[in-house]
């Protein structure tokens, strides 16, 4: 349990998707103009991460890894399909975002109106594929760990985009040099926030 909390805190703050690995920067810069839309996108990212990362973990461990196919027959012990991982991961992600979109549309039209436009965007959000690829690299042992990691990363990403959106709303009224306005200042702000987030590095629970 302690291990899981630790993992959660680390994936939210220290190994934050945006500030430590720059994942999902495109939508991060493009959508963070207002707090309201950022919250929408943030929630959508959390949902999709929590669904796809554990799913891809199952694919990785019961289909792709060397020796993963032994549950079918011990003849497959030496089969290593790892080279297919990229294509299967992205296919899962694309299919899942489509599915989530359809389910939300059917059962909660109001949520669909709030999130709907972001979901198709998410299939090509690097944070989602990045979550799965880090999962593969870090060799998590249990599905609980993977789910906690996915949730933590998603919340970390949402936290980042909401806080940067709040700052951007404020600085609309600031006197920024014209060439730096918009994207330029957002990059620098993100950099400064990343430095602030580095102060979490020493923490341990």
């Amino acid at each position: 349990m302690e291990n899981l909390i630790n993992l959660f805190v680390r994936s939210v703050f220290i190994d934050n998707m945006v500030f430590a690995y720059f994942l999902g920067m495109c939508s991060f810069i493009a959508v963070s103009k207002t707090v309201k839309t950022s919250i929408g996108l943030g929630i959508a990212v959390i949902c999709v991460l929590v669904i796809t990362v554990p799913l891809n973990w199952l694919i990785e461990n019961y289909l792709l890894k060397e020796g993963a196919l032994t549950w079918i027959s011990s003849d497959f012990a030496n089969v290593d399909l790892d080279f297919l991982s990229f294509i299967l991961f992205i296919a899962t992600i694309a299919a899942m975002t489509q599915l989530v979109e359809m389910i939300i549309e059917k059962f909660s039209p109001s949520l669909y109106n709030a999130l709907g436009i972001f979901l198709p965007l998410i299939a090509v959000n690097c944070a989602i594929l990045g979550g799965s690829l880090f999962m593969q690299q870090r060799e998590f042992n249990t599905i609980a760990e993977v789910s906690v990691y996915a949730l933590g990363s998603g919340i970390g990403w949402a936290l980042a985009i909401v806080s940067i959106a709040a700052i951007r709303e404020k600085i609309t009224y600031s006197n920024i040099p014209a060439p730096l306005k918009g994207t330029g200042i957002t990059f620098i702000l993100t950099g400064l926030m990343a430095i602030a987030f580095m102060s979490f590095m020493g923490i341990k629970i």
């Binding site: 500030f19 060439p179 730096l180 330029g184 950099g191 400064l192």
Partner: peptide
């Protein structure tokens, strides 16, 4: 990591100062 972001921010700043015609979004 943070410095990469700040350097890109500065590159954008320089580039937009030189070529003024780039529309700001």
């Amino acid at each position: 990591p943070p410095m990469a972001l700040i350097i890109i921010g500065i590159i954008i700043w320089i580039q937009r100062s030189i070529s003024k015609n780039i529309v700001n979004n």
